[in-house]
Structure formats: C-alpha cells, structure tokens
Amino acid sequence: MEYFFELFLGGLTRGSIYALIALGYTMVYGIVQLINFAHGEIYMIGAFTALIVISVLTMLGWNQIAILLIAAGVAVVYSSAYGYTMEKIAYKPLRKAPRLSALISAIGMSLFLQNYVLLAQTSDFMPFPGLIPDFEFMEPYAHIIGSPELVILITTAIVMVLLTIMIKFSKIGKAMRATAQDRDMAMLVGVNVNWVISVTFIIGSATAAIGGVLIASHIGQVNFYIGFIAGIKAFVAAVLGGIGSIPGAVLGSLVLGWTESFFTGYISSDYEDVFAFIFLVLILIFRPAGILGRSTAEKV
C-alpha cells in the first residue's frame, strides 16, 4: 500500500509538471486553433534563463531563497517576452492562412529557438542546482514525499486556481472566452482580438516558465533539447483532456502522469512511453474529443 501511495504521489508530481506546460498549449489552441509546436522551446528558454540568473547571483553570494524567487521571476518575464515575440513574427501574419502553414511555421520556430540556444550557450547538459530547500516540518513525511515535490504540487495548484479565477471573472478572461467562441463576433462587440491573443501567449509562456524552473531544479539538469520531449508529452496530455479546455488539460496531465508512474512502478519502465501512447489512443477511440472535451455536433 505504501508503494502504491508512493507511485500515486510520483504520478501526481509528474502530472502537475505536465499540466503547467499543457496549459499553454490548450489556451493557445482554444483561441487560435494552432498547435504551438514551439511551446516546449519557451519552457526550455525559461529554464535556461533561470539557470543563467542563478549562476550569476550565486557567484555574487546571494541568499538561496532570494535567488530562487528572482530567477523564477526573470524566467517568467523572459519566457513571456519570447512567447509574445514569437506570436508576432511566426503566427500573426498567418492568421488567415491554411492551418497547416501555421503548424510548419511553428515547427520552424521550434527548430530556430533550439539551435539558437544551442549555439549561444552549449549543447551539453548543464547542471541545475536544486534550490528548493528541505523544510523541517516535512521531515516525518520525507519517505513519502520530498519538499521539492511538495513545492511543485503547491505551485501548480496555485497557478491553476489563479488561472481559473482569471478566466472566469476578469475582463480579459471574458474577452478570451469570447474570442475562443467566435473571433469575428468578439471583434464586432469591441474586443481587441490581437491583444487577447498576445495575452494568451504571454500567460501560456509564463506558466511554462514556472514549469521550466520547477522541473529543472527537480531533475537537476537542462539542455537545449528538453523542450521538445516535454512539449510532446504536454501536448498529449492536453489532447487527452480535451484540447481547448483548461480543467481538461490539468486532468489529462494528471491521468498521463499516473499512467506513466503506475506502469513504470508495476510493470516495466522500458515500455512506459508506449503504454502512455496506447492509453491515449484507447481514450480517444471511446471519447474522440478527449476526456472533458465536448464533441460539438456539426450544424449543416
């Protein structure tokens, strides 16, 4: 039973990490119907920026917690800036183009950013310091869940709640929902659609950056390629939950995290990814629009 619980928590941690990245995918998809292939790269840039800030500040001898917070802040700012710029360059001119063109543009962007970091920084794995301290009050539970995992879970939960509140109640959230439903109609009632799309990219990138910092300090290393794999996993999670739906992205990520965790724990780690994908295919066969996605009947 303890083993089960351990796997459960492991899956939960993994799932919350996927969720932070999947949120960006699903929000962007909900509004512009674009698979933002370069989203994983934004996450990678967030992690790299944080690493650079951390290294500089560590050499200056700052306090650990302060470093962590500043690094996360800078990473969020930079990732958002990258997300914003990326949308302006690679997607905005393509709003009216065939959807596949935008996908190829996203792939181009992804390749560009990967190689940009590769050339400007390094192709090696860089060690990422684990900055999250071990809390004292966590000691009795340390054999079940470590402090870093706890921090990840709590951060993810806070981000989810804030995001939900924002989308439900704030003005920009309302504008986002309107744009997602019908872009032309939203424009007619005075929503600044370009701004809404920019904000969506900024928020998605910011959550990805938070994910990037947390994961990097959890795993302990980064390189220019981490964004691609994480991006694919998060994309799978977003689709699993029903792409375009925010609770769906969270649920999908948790389901994916648990699937991987239990499968690795009980059966075999070799086929972990195979099983995750088979599970995805099975769910989509029975629920073609994802777990929480509404399958809209098409009007003719």
């Binding site: 393509l94 183009a97 063109s101 543009s105 181009g108 962007m109 390749l111 050339l119």
Partner: peptide
C-alpha cells in the same frame, strides 16, 4: 556549418509567412 539548422528553421518561418501555400 552549425548555423544551418538555425537557418533552416528561419527559412521555414519566412517561407510560410510570405508564401503560406
């Protein structure tokens, strides 16, 4: 040399922006 994939990514984006078809 090492810039070619960078250039390739940029070409993909530029190509799609100016000739999406």
């Amino acid at each position: 040399s090492e810039y070619r994939i960078l250039a390739f990514g940029a070409v993909l984006v530029v190509m799609m922006v100016f000739r999406p078809g």
